[in-house]
Amino acid sequence: MSFDHRHLLGIEQLAPDDITAILDLSEDYVTLNRQTAKHSDVLGGLTQINMFFENSTRTQASFEIAGKRLGADVMNMAMQASSIKKGETLIDTALTLNAMHPDLLVVRHPHSGAVDLLAQKVNCAVLNAGDGRHEHPTQALLDALTIRRAKGRLHRLNVAICGDIAHSRVARSNILLLGKMENRIRLIGPPTLMPSQIDQFGVEVYDDMKQGLADVDVVMMLRLQRERMDGGFIPSEREYYHRFGLDAEKLALARPDAIVMHPGPMNRGVEIDGTLADDINRSVIQDQVEMGVAVRMAAMELLARNLLASRPDAA
């Protein structure tokens, strides 16, 4: 097993072998999760704390279920409601929690780099559950697993990532992951929603959905992050939907077997047509959610293994 990382902070730090190791282990958990008895005990006795400094329902639930199925003691902390409001700094919060001897910290934070900062201050393994516009590694991994299962491979695919790239940590992690696994990546969206010099990331950039979708194997839609927009990035949602929303007509330009993905939560009628999202022949959106639990179980198991091996009391 090649995965020798202490934390999972981003895809940037992972080698292709690391990615494959996580995905291979995830397959076992997909099988386990489909059984009636979904329990393993690889995290037995370990404490997992989910610290979410930003609202999340699905990611937090996914990490919680993943931890519980692996036998960890899982605690959720809704950080917006807690000491942060009382003026405590991120580092103090981290040190306080650290003193309670957690083994796995799952952290989401609205600021890029905040999870890296926190990871420097604690003794346990830290999983980045999304930091600002930076990275969301487990999302990219679950997307990779979904693609690999649907397409039978995770290389030499044409993948289009569409929409609000600028505000998306999902896009950054996916660009890094799919690039490392040697896929062709196209980014499609209005130029106001493209990060600067994004063309230097080994991607092709399109501002025309119809050109961009030609012959792609995977269409990955992103949520329009209205809450992160501090100015007019697009003229209106209806114009956005007209030009960049995914509907059957635009999807017809992709390969006939192209799959449609979305990290959720969806804005139906803004970036994706509702009927299309529910089309079980094209949409793998529900599979992504299922893969999410498996990938998080695998990632936590690998990190816990390294954590236990690094402890002085390890035999």
């Binding site: 890029s112 780099g113 930091d131 930076h134 950054r172 990060p195 600067s196 010099q197």
Partner: peptide
């Protein structure tokens, strides 16, 4: 400063 590094770091 905007550019490749800023985009990578998401700042």
């Amino acid at each position: 400063t905007s550019g490749k590094f800023a985009s990578l770091r998401g700042l």
